[in-house]
Design a binder for these strands. Sequence first.
DNA 1: CAAATCTAGTTGCTCGTGCAACGAATCTGG
DNA 2: CCAGATTCGTTGCACGAGCAACTAGATTTG
Lengths: 167, 167
Amino acid sequence: MPSGSAARKPTAEPLVVLEEFLPYRLNVLAGLTSSALAQIYAERYGLSIPAWRVIVTLGQYEFRTARDMAPDGVMHKSTVSRAVSALEKRGLVTRRPNLDDRREEWLALTPEGRAIYEAVAPEALAVGERLLSVLTAQEQKTLSTLIDKLTQQARLLAPQDAEGEET
Amino acid sequence: MPSGSAARKPTAEPLVVLEEFLPYRLNVLAGLTSSALAQIYAERYGLSIPAWRVIVTLGQYEFRTARDMAPDGVMHKSTVSRAVSALEKRGLVTRRPNLDDRREEWLALTPEGRAIYEAVAPEALAVGERLLSVLTAQEQKTLSTLIDKLTQQARLLAPQDAEGEET
DNA sequence: CAAATCTAGTTGCTCGTGCAACGAATCTGG
DNA sequence: CCAGATTCGTTGCACGAGCAACTAGATTTG
């Protein structure tokens, strides 16, 4: 147990107790789940988090533009751009210019890309479910609601749209 | 409205729906709250996330070693090391060798460091509370429980101890 | 239809941070 | 009491990602 030395005497007035601070706890949890997931898509398939998100989105929607990948400002557009380039270079994604608006391009999975998607997705899902397995069905529904409420509120408090992390 | 093009037709069998995937949602939420907080301690006080954590911990415990800053593997030790160096250079933190074990050093806030702590902490707390303000007291308790359960479980699924993000 | 404005996407730069290798101090076992 | 293993902390390296500036194309306005 590494926290054997943990019981150091607290200051007179600890204004913030980190371990109870919601943003901190959310980040720790998010980081841990990211690590768990990364084991799969990173170590096993060489995918970065942005790449994983691109693949999942394309697996979900068939055709999308790069901009669609960052629906609400999650992921910077440069991040998406580089992820797509990398995936294209690996032959997992194709670009096809949109003739109606030649600024953007339609992205799609190649057969190889889809193969990876079909291999990774179930494993990722399994991790998600193993995570949730410690909650009852009712708790899972509650959690979902709470996350939505908080996310909505956080969006109001965050700068404008900024952000960009993992999973 | 950027999502005007959102209703792209889904694939036959979307294996994973990203917007419903717990790890993804957790990361988005954590990222947004981080951004909200960063507005304060980064833009206003020039503190990185690790630096902020160090300051809060020292504000909480008076004396700590660098290792204590990463209780469970949150934050890499190199991250802590660099954060502490930076804080020392700014005169916010002091190091004093531990004579009982000269591998480690006792860290503490300088008066300047404490002043910053006392300025930042309430603001950060306020953000946390504004976040939570959309939840009832009961919901807040529930959330806390759920986060704990999930964190515990995530720790089992994550590699060994790996991790390292924001707040 | 020209000028100004806006949007999609790319790229150079920089910085934060994880990793791995290392140095120093400590602890353990023969 | 010495040799190997372990732990605290630092540092070189590389890479991922945000920012800002830019190109190219589209849209608006007068």
